[in-house]
Design a protein around this nucleic acid. Structure first.
Length: 320
DNA sequence: GATCCGTGGTT
DNA sequence: TAACCAAGGAT
């Protein structure tokens, strides 16, 4: 649900503190306004200088960054995003090439299905939206590979709309500051959406800055393992800190095994196809994994997912 | 709602 | 070192 049409909080034009003045009486302004000022001030000072946040970033470049950043760290995305923007500066440019080129250019970012969906999204944008990334939240959500988070992120970051942008960083900040727990639930809950909506600034532009600022706070200060509360602008208001940093209560979140899984096999198979110029013989694919049953299952899965295309019996390539 | 889907850096 | 973590999405 978008929060754009359901403003839940007033924004009273109460007296502002002079910049730099120490907070004296906290309840003077609504709590939310105080949090906003703190985080926005912090963001002004500490935000990373990321290219997709630059004034000349386009909605498309922002959307590409969001796809790449789905489960992949900023540091690894940066060089690949630069390459993509030079090669495919518009959705139409990407759509004009076969999907296999997107998969190849995705390199080792991981989850290559994202590359395929981004190519599909570029095609849809070119065909259905005149080559321009749609501003409408529902239209964004309808694009392949665009889910709740990405739709809100693009609408907020690119089009300055008022949406709750709930990523893992933001969820962690709210879990700590508001709920007083170390970690958010495994899956996003309705309660979390309500919390995020309730803390969203009224004004759209302010909401957009708040969205990226809270995310940045979670990424740089309120980190998963070793939060640096000493640097946190919300430290004195954080329920988790005030409660003495109680450890996560409940079952440990199960780590995702990788070694020996189909995913690892798929990764190796696709790596061979990515690095090859053209179609690849079965014999070359057979070398990446001993277990023939698992190997065949992984290859079938790649074909079923549209990441690999059978050319003829025993020959495969990236989709053309 | 649980599982699957890559890859590499950090602790 | 094994486990954890990283701007999620689809089924």
């Amino acid at each position: 649900m978008t929060t754009a049409s359901t403003p839940r909080q007033r924004r009273s034009p109460g007296p502002r503190r002079s910049p730099g003045a120490a907070p004296t009486v906290v309840p003077a302004a609504p709590l939310a306004d105080l949090l906003h000022e703190r985080v926005l001030d912090w963001y002004r000072r500490e935000a990373r200088d990321l290219p997709w946040r630059a004034p000349d970033a386009t909605p498309w470049s922002i959307m590409v960054s969001e796809f790449m950043l789905q489960q992949t760290p900023v540091k690894r995305v940066l060089p690949k995003w630069q390459e993509w923007m030079e090669r495919w500066p518009t959705p139409a440019a990407l759509a004009a090439e076969p999907p296999g080129e997107a998969i190849r250019a995705w390199g080792r970012l991981g989850y290559p299905g994202r590359a395929l969906r981004l190519h599909s999204a570029a095609t849809a944008i070119t065909q259905r939206h005149g080559g321009r990334v749609p501003e409408d939240h529902a239209a964004l959500l309808a694009l392949p590979g665009v889910g709740e988070y990405t739709a809100a992120a693009v609408a907020s970051f690119a089009f300055r709309q008022r949406h709750a942008v709930l990523d893992t960083n933001v969820r962690r900040v709210y879990a700590r500051v508001v709920d007083g727990v170390q970690y958010p639930p495994n899956a996003t809950t309705a309660a979390e959406r309500r919390t995020a909506a309730a803390h969203l600034p009224e004004d759209a532009e302010t909401a957009a800055r708040w969205a990226v600022a809270v995310m940045e706070l979670g990424a740089l200060v309120c980190t998963a393992r070793t939060p640096e509360c000493a640097r946190c602008p919300l430290a004195d208001a954080c329920a988790w800190r005030l409660a003495g940093h109680p450890p996560h209560d409940g079952p440990a979140r199960r780590g995702q095994a990788y070694a020996g899984t189909d995913r690892q096999v798929r990764g190796r198979l696709l790596a061979v196809l990515r690095e090859a110029d053209g179609p690849v013989e079965q014999a070359r694919l057979d070398q990446v994994w001993d277990d023939a049953v698992q190997r065949a299952r992984a290859l079938d899965g790649l074909v079923a997912d549209g990441l690999v295309e059978p050319v003829e019996q025993g020959v495969y390539r990236l989709p053309g």
